[in-house]
């Protein structure tokens, strides 16, 4: 087992809906270690996205704590949170979320542009390598709208991985893909997990994803109902 990189304790995230309070996450306690390939599994509304967002420092706990890569999310300033995301965390979304006016190359380069220490030749090399990982080296100059869904998601993976983050958070990455493309991107992510020892946390209810997971955390109504590793 690797070192613990995420420590979640008694985490509650609630939303005020008029007079009632909805607990999207209700007292969640979890640890994650380096190199995991783990899924948060549960039906729609069970709190998967909410948990990923808090781990990704896009959202804050209502109570409890979430320590990610040595930083307590609830204490970070917006600027510190941005730095954490920029250097350490890659995001993959269900809807790909490519930036429409940028080319594939520029989409992948974008997170590197936010890291001032990287010079142009370095960035070029990193983008080239990321394109190779996802098998899209020949599409660097294309626009997102010229690509299929599966290709878009591969670009998104390249964009998440290009800066070699320690953690990748993938929110239902296969929900908009067919079986063939789903299998394809899972393979890519497994390979990256193996070769770079990147920690992957998924949210999913897709069997094609679940069968690859080494750890399955089941969520229901904002609570952890089971946590199995193989």
């Amino acid at each position: 087992m690797g070192e613990t990189i995420i420590k979640i304790q008694n985490l509650i995230r609630s939303y005020q809906m008029g007079s009632t309070t909805l607990n999207a996450l209700n007292n969640v306690t979890l640890d994650f270690t380096t190199g995991e390939f783990t899924g948060l599994i549960g039906p729609s509304g069970s709190g998967k996205t909410t948990l990923l967002n808090i781990i990704g420092s896009l959202d804050l706990p209502t109570s409890g704590s979430a320590e990610v890569l040595g930083r307590k999310i609830e204490t970070l300033s917006p600027k510190q949170a941005a730095v954490l995301r920029n250097f350490e965390i890659g995001f993959i979304f269900q809807t790909f979320n490519l930036l429409p006016v940028y080319t594939i190359y520029e989409n992948i380069e974008f997170p590197l542009l936010l890291q001032p220490q990287l010079k142009t030749p370095q960035r070029r090399e990193m983008v080239r390598q990321a394109l190779e990982w996802v098998g899209l080296a020949d599409r660097a100059g294309s626009m997102p709208k010229q690509l299929s869904g599966g290709q878009c998601q591969r670009v998104a993976i390249a964009r998440a991985i290009v800066k070699k983050p320690r953690l990748v958070l993938a929110d239902e990455p296969t929900a908009n893909l067919d079986a063939q493309n789903s299998a394809n991107i899972m393979e890519i992510m497994l390979k990256l997990n193996r070769e770079l020892n990147t920690t992957f946390i998924f949210s999913t209810h897709d069997e094609k994803v679940i069968k690859h997971l080494r750890r399955k955390i089941k969520l229901a109504d904002g609570q952890v109902v089971s946590d199995e590793s193989i």
Binding site: L84, R85, N86, F91, P100, P111, L114, R159
Partner: peptide, 16 residues
Amino acid sequence: IKEMGTMLALGITKND
């Protein structure tokens, strides 16, 4: 708005 959310997730600051 979604594009902005994506950029924020990629680590841009609101000021930028």
